[in-house]
Write a protein that binds this DNA or RNA. Structure first.
Lengths: 247, 247
DNA sequence: CGTTTGCTTGACAGCATTCAACGTTGGTGG
DNA sequence: CCACCAACGTTGAATGCTGTCAAGCAAACG
């Protein structure tokens, strides 16, 4: 169905000059709500960065779990597969979001994380994260919130996959994407998709053809303009109403 | 689609004599891997129990989040809904499993937890859980593993909802159920379902009719016997192969 | 014993998949 | 700079799975 081959990024972490306190994602990341002094200590733990080239994997299913990762720049997808080889994109991650939380449960990652464009992540060794979060309750609380948010997010996707039809799924996907982009200072109406139609399809439990058709239909309804991976949302409320009101 | 009415259980926590160290679910619960001495301290936090009658809610979406709950006996479903009223069962929980983790992210529960039979839960005040897990790394680690396991579980459901056809979904559901029951000392082949066909359908993103048909088909294939809510699995490997091999 | 609820089954319609053909884009090398 | 190729995306037609609706039945409950 999808290519199983996975190119691994070189595992060499590099040290950069950027700090958590100086990071413009700090209010969306683990450090949210931390005291400046505590953050200084946290920076001693999160000193390593890793560059991941487009198409390379940050980690793969089965890899030993040692760290979680905060996306510093770029864009990722996570992809899981069942024993028989069925694959599915389980999420898309952008700057400020955490990757690797799946690995805690078994000390092994259960999905692949692949960069959709050249990216950079902060490496957060998990042992040390746990240790620090034993000392700083702000950090502990924020970490728990992030894990919980991931649970709630996944359940939202379950609702989407279980209840919505193709157009609604795509609308929900686009709205979610634009909301997250907006929180990062980007336009809420002009989106440049980083993922292929096939990846969107996989994430939404549909096929490439259905996604393409759904884009066309949303465009015919005057809700957006599609030009390759450039999406111009002309009627955000209309998109939203696709989900709220009666179909 | 589904009834929205939710009867709330009386909020009176009761104290029982049973301790964590004496609980037969201790190896499946938060206390797994804890030292006996630490467990004693933990018991001072987890002193309250709540009885929930069949059909009553342990908590509901929007309720303030104060505690997580460990199922001591009985059986629950969690149910979420989107703004427009679409509902979906997001999971079924049995003894030893944790409820309420969704509430951490926003300090409000985002789903309902409803007892499918008369049940009993241990109330674990979250503030105190965080405090204790700052002192005991075993507890901290176990809690993180449980949250991570929930993430992985949800992603497994996403894969099911996104990729499988009706019979496969039902097979996967039954296998998952029997595995969990087996881990609790019950038979892996004789299952007494606690949920209705409609609840199974909602969980699997299907309709009541399709579930009923799928049960009949699995029975016709000689994989199991259905008699109301009593399921006798006669060919567990065959069920498993439904998922592994080519459909 | 009657009523209600839950479940099964049939017929039909609809939405998404499948398969295939065609068009477009972007990258590569001449 | 252009030509070519491969990957990606769009669209059409036919198939098939699942949803919908309704009828009938069984089980549970009072």
């Amino acid at each position: 169905m999808y290519a199983v081959t996975t190119i691994r990024a070189s595992a060499t972490p590099k040290k950069f000059e950027v700090t958590c306190s100086g990071c413009n994602m700090r209010e969306l990341c683990l450090t949210q709500g931390m005291q400046p002094d505590d953050m200084r200590l946290f920076e001693n733990v999160v000193y390593a960065r890793r560059r991941i080239k487009r198409g390379e994997a940050l980690f793969g299913a089965g890899d030993e779990f040692k760290s979680v990762y905060a996306v510093r720049s770029g864009f990722f997808k996570t992809r899981m597969s069942s024993e028989d080889g069925r694959e599915q994109v389980s999420g898309f991650q952008m700057a400020g979001e955490l990757l690797g939380l799946d690995g805690i449960s078994t000390d092994q990652h259960s999905c692949d994380a692949v960069a959709l464009e050249d990216s950079q992540v902060c490496v957060i060794p998990f042992e040390q994260l746990e240790q620090l979060s034993r000392e700083f309750s702000d950090l502990q609380r924020q970490f728990h919130k992030i894990m919980s948010r991931e649970i709630v997010r996944d359940q939202g996707v379950m609702l989407l996959l279980g209840n919505m039809r193709a157009e609604e799924r795509l609308a929900a996907f686009l709205l979610n994407l634009t909301q997250r982009l907006q929180a990062r200072g980007f336009s809420a109406t002009a989106v440049s998709l980083r993922m292929s139609r096939e990846e969107i399809a996989s994430f939404l439990g549909l096929t490439l053809g259905t996604i393409s058709r759904s884009f066309s239909k949303l465009q015919d309804q005057g809700l957006l303009f599609v030009r390759n991976r450039q999406i111009q949302i002309t009627d955000p409320l209309g998109l939203q109403q696709l989900l709220d009101g009666a179909p």
